[in-house]
Nucleic acid binder design. Structure first.
Lengths: 235, 235
DNA sequence: TAAAATAAATAAATATAATTCATTAAAACT
DNA sequence: AGTTTTAATGAATTATATTTATTTATTTTA
């Protein structure tokens, strides 16, 4: 071999270490440039390997993306169950789920975008690990609603899955502009608004007699006023 | 020129006709293969032009996609206003908006996917014509809600935009699987479910006389509400 | 109507990235 | 130390989007 085509010092790391390096580089570059605008050469450089090496560990570019998101998802969802077990009351538990979703979007808008754009809409999504993780995670929301119905706090005549779709759909729509890099949103306020709007449609309506306003009715009215006030000041 | 490199008969159509042909071909191929898997060569062939010709009328591949979706959107939204003016009552009008959205997704899942994946999440989305059309279209939903509030039929203490996000977010989440080609959904049933769930959270609660729950139970509920309120405002 | 000007359409060239593969060299094994 | 295995390389290949020089149809105009 001529000295003109010297190859750099080759170091052989463990399989696990190489995979970690490539995934870390992939996450960074994907986060920064998105999927299509992220050349594999950038990822290779950042991971200190040559492009071809990536194909030893990943089937193709998309496979790398899927694994990167998978990895992120696993860590992110790890402590859900634990956190949730420390929260009681239907409203609080539901609010936590919503709050958590909002926080994830707020913290990692780019990765969320990749998840929404390239994983969730893919034909093979329902065979992926991310799909499974996601199912398990949203199942907790269903459980909370089911419990609420069991305790008589929530209406029992609506589809659980529809409520779930409403919650997550609402959150995502609300955050679309932020995901495009336009403006910001407040996690706490939004969580309050969403949980309030969903619950006021879910909560059983308390039957009240119409004739003479007794003490309980007056109290309830005051509560409603206070709630409205709280919603207003939240903005 | 040698007879080996014969160029086929060249026909020169009007500018408008060529654009139409290319857009029609683009719509077909994009609908069939998506964006990334649709080679420009397929579109050119279907439009009876050569690849390079597309660049006379469109800046690049993405520009063609944007124009294709734009074109579809314009036709699709054309009669909204007219149809809506023939429908009265807050619930019916809201249901129409939801039904219409569901029907669009049901009829053109592939184009909706392109819109969601490649237009709405693009950095330049809020400068596009599609964004404008979309705004105008969802504004009608806001108007319906505003009217409902004006007539005293709907609660006046929720954010209009949040309700809109809830409606469209819910519909989209509900149809995600269908958009991936998994299963089907019933437009009528889904429209009914969504409008019911949203409204039962929006409608002012009518005081219904019935069997009165005992005072202690009612007081307990109110106290719970106050406690929650105190916890919320404390943050 | 024929020559000149204009613009459309072409086909080949170029550029960029993903993917493949034969070769090299580090580590493991005997 | 010599042999085998396999990670890593870097060059080659492929697939497309995009650009450009050239050709050809149409319009203008004298």
């Amino acid at each position: 071999m001529s000295n003109a085509t010297k190859r750099r010092q080759v170091s052989r790391l463990s399989r696990a270490r190489r995979i970690d390096d490539i995934m870390a580089a992939g996450r960074e570059v994907f986060r920064e440039k998105g999927y299509e605008d992220a050349p594999l050469s950038d990822i290779a450089e950042k991971a200190n390997v040559v492009e071809g090496s990536i194909y030893r560990y990943f089937e193709n570019k998309r496979d790398l993306l899927v694994k990167v998101i998978e990895d992120w998802y696993k860590v992110m969802l790890a402590d859900y169950q634990e956190q949730l077990s420390g929260i009681s009351g239907t409203r609080n538990r539901l609010r936590y789920m919503i709050w958590r979703h909002l926080k994830t979007i707020h913290d990692e808008p780019a990765l969320c975008n990749l998840m929404f754009q390239y994983l969730r809409s893919g034909k093979d999504y329902s065979q992926t690990v991310v799909y499974k993780l996601n199912r398990e995670y949203t199942r907790q929301t269903l459980d909370i609603i089911r419990e609420g119905i069991g305790k008589g706090e929530l209406r029992n005549d609506v589809s659980l899955r529809l409520v779930r779709d409403m919650i997550y759909g609402c959150v995502e729509h609300r955050t679309w502009a932020y995901l495009r890099g336009e403006g910001d949103f407040d996690i706490e306020t939004t969580a309050n608004e969403v949980v309030e709007l969903v619950l006021s449609g879910l909560e059983v309506r308390s039957a009240v007699s119409g004739t003479k306003p007794d003490i309980s009715k007056r109290l309830e009215r005051v509560v409603e006023k206070l709630e409205r006030l709280a919603a207003t000041t939240g903005e």
